[in-house]
Design a protein around this nucleic acid. Structure first.
Length: 307
DNA sequence: AAGACGAAAGTGGTTGA
DNA sequence: TCAACAACTTTCGTCTT
């Protein structure tokens, strides 16, 4: 295990990095970002203990992975065939006792993890999420199980919550609707477990940036690259006049996209934009009104309408 | 007829006493 | 723990294109 040493926060660039060795966390004291909360190096170890003979750089094993139910490192105390190799009765007693305990402790958790991780992979591939997000989600789920947070909740909803959290942390946000569709869990339920799990585990997540949603929404609406980048500019301007705080990021992203589509003569209806963004037309309208008012875009929009 | 607009009432979550 | 609250949704009627 190798500690990763970071000098600067990748998020805000601050050098005020605090490492809490008890919890195994590294976090930035300026913005609160948890940089690495399990200080394990996942890269492979390339040492070879044989001198010159044999192929060099033999691996010592696969890198550990959170998506394997036992992280690829299984421990099992013997099978019954091992029993006959044991000598005394004492040894045999001990063997059975240990084996029994080992099975009792591990099966409950590990059986759960096995099923949960299969579900997690299914949902993750349905949403075409990157491997890194899947890993993160698996890690969050594992922690949740270890803390007994699954009790009283369905396994699927915790999986969905963990995935949602992982998406947010990796800045590839999916809406709760999409997550709901992929996992078959009510979006309310996902939101609830998401909040519960992140709070209980002390996972800090920054409010998501509306701009993160733009590329996906834009491609779903088949909008041009210019329209897309224009909407990002609009979001930038909106942020400066503080129109973004306190509002749902998807609503703002949708409105920016809508305005941008008007401005570039690629008009989409409010309904279409609302559908891909998972908000209602009303919300788009409200954001849209605020946008054109505060950013003095009214005249521009009027102009393109007449043409 | 479809889309845009806006009013009114309802929902679920946050906050502060 | 409860009430006030802000954001968002649902529903529905009206206006515009």
């Amino acid at each position: 295990m190798i500690r990763k040493s970071l000098k600067e926060c990748p998020e805000c660039g601050s050098s005020d990095i605090f490492r809490n060795t008890d919890k195994g966390e590294t976090l930035c004291r300026t913005c609160g970002l948890v940089i690495e909360d399990r200080m394990v190096d996942f890269s492979q170890e390339w040492r070879d203990f044989q001198d010159d003979s044999g192929p060099s750089k033999r691996r010592s094993g696969a890198p550990t992975s959170h998506t394997q139910f036992d992280q690829g490192l299984g421990t099992e105390i013997g099978s019954t065939s091992d029993f006959y190799k044991l000598g005394s009765d004492k040894d045999r007693d001990k063997f059975f006792r240990l084996r029994k305990w080992n099975i009792r402790i591990s099966t409950a958790i590990e059986r759960n993890l096995k099923v949960a991780l299969a579900e997690l992979k299914r949902v993750s591939s349905f949403l075409k999420l990157p491997k890194s997000v899947e890993e993160e989600a698996a890690r969050i789920y594992r922690l949740a199980v270890q803390k007994g947070l699954v009790r009283g909740r369905s396994m699927e909803s915790v999986v969905a919550g963990a995935l949602y959290a992982a998406c947010r942390r990796h800045e590839v946000p999916r809406t709760l609707d999409e997550m709901g569709e992929a996992s078959g869990i009510e979006k309310k339920e996902i939101g609830r477990t998401y909040r519960f799990v992140t709070r209980e585990l002390g996972i800090s997540i920054k409010p998501s940036n509306p701009a993160d949603y733009i590329p996906r929404f834009a491609s779903a609406l088949k909008l041009s690259a210019e329209t897309q980048s224009r909407s990002v500019e609009i979001l930038e301007m909106a942020r400066e006049v503080e129109l973004t705080s306190g509002r749902g990021p998807t609503g703002i992203a949708a409105a920016a996209l809508y305005v941008s589509s008007l401005l570039h003569g690629e008009k989409r209806t409010q309904r279409e934009v609302a559908d891909v963004a998972g908000v209602t037309e009303v919300t788009i309208r409200n954001r849209y009104k605020e946008l054109i008012k505060r950013l003095n875009l009214t005249k521009q929009v009027e102009k393109t309408k007449k043409k």
